[in-house]
Simulated scan of single mutants.
Amino acid sequence: MSEKELNEEKSTVKTAENTAEAEEVEVVEEVFAEEPPKEEEKSEQLLQTEIEELKKQNAELQTKLDEAENRILRVQADFENARRRARLDLEASEKYKAQSLISDLLPAIDNFERALAMEADNEQAKSLLQGVEMVYRSLLDALKNAGAEQIEAVGKEFDPHIHQAIMQVEDENFGSNVVVEEFQKGYILKDRVIRPAMVKVNQ
Score class of each variant (00 low, 15 high):
residue 4 K to Y: 15
residue 9 E to K: 12
residue 10 K to D: 09
residue 10 K to Q: 10
residue 11 S to T: 03
residue 16 A to Y: 05
residue 18 N to A: 12
residue 19 T to P: 01
residue 26 E to C: 06
residue 27 V to P: 00
residue 28 V to N: 15
residue 32 F to Q: 13
residue 32 F to L: 15
residue 33 A to Y: 13
residue 39 E to S: 11
residue 39 E to M: 13
residue 41 E to G: 15
residue 42 K to L: 15
residue 45 Q to G: 14
residue 46 L to I: 13
residue 50 E to C: 13
residue 53 E to F: 09
residue 54 L to V: 05
residue 60 E to F: 02
residue 64 K to V: 11
residue 71 R to F: 04
residue 71 R to E: 11
residue 72 I to Y: 11
residue 76 Q to K: 13
residue 77 A to N: 06
residue 78 D to E: 12
residue 79 F to Q: 10
residue 79 F to T: 10
residue 80 E to K: 03
residue 83 R to Y: 14
residue 90 L to I: 07
residue 96 Y to A: 11
residue 98 A to N: 04
residue 101 L to F: 14
residue 106 L to K: 03
residue 108 A to K: 02
residue 110 D to Q: 03
residue 113 E to K: 00
residue 113 E to N: 01
residue 115 A to H: 02
residue 117 A to W: 01
residue 118 M to S: 05
residue 119 E to Q: 08
residue 120 A to Y: 10
residue 120 A to I: 09
residue 125 A to N: 06
residue 129 L to P: 00
residue 133 E to F: 02
residue 143 L to C: 01
residue 145 N to A: 12
residue 148 A to N: 04
residue 152 E to A: 10
residue 155 G to V: 06
residue 155 G to Q: 06
residue 158 F to D: 03
residue 159 D to W: 12
residue 166 I to Q: 07
residue 171 D to E: 10
residue 172 E to G: 13
residue 175 G to F: 12
residue 178 V to M: 11
residue 179 V to K: 05
residue 181 E to D: 13
residue 181 E to A: 13
residue 183 F to Q: 10
residue 183 F to S: 07
residue 184 Q to H: 07
residue 186 G to A: 03
residue 189 L to T: 04
residue 198 M to K: 11
residue 203 Q to C: 12
residue 203 Q to M: 14
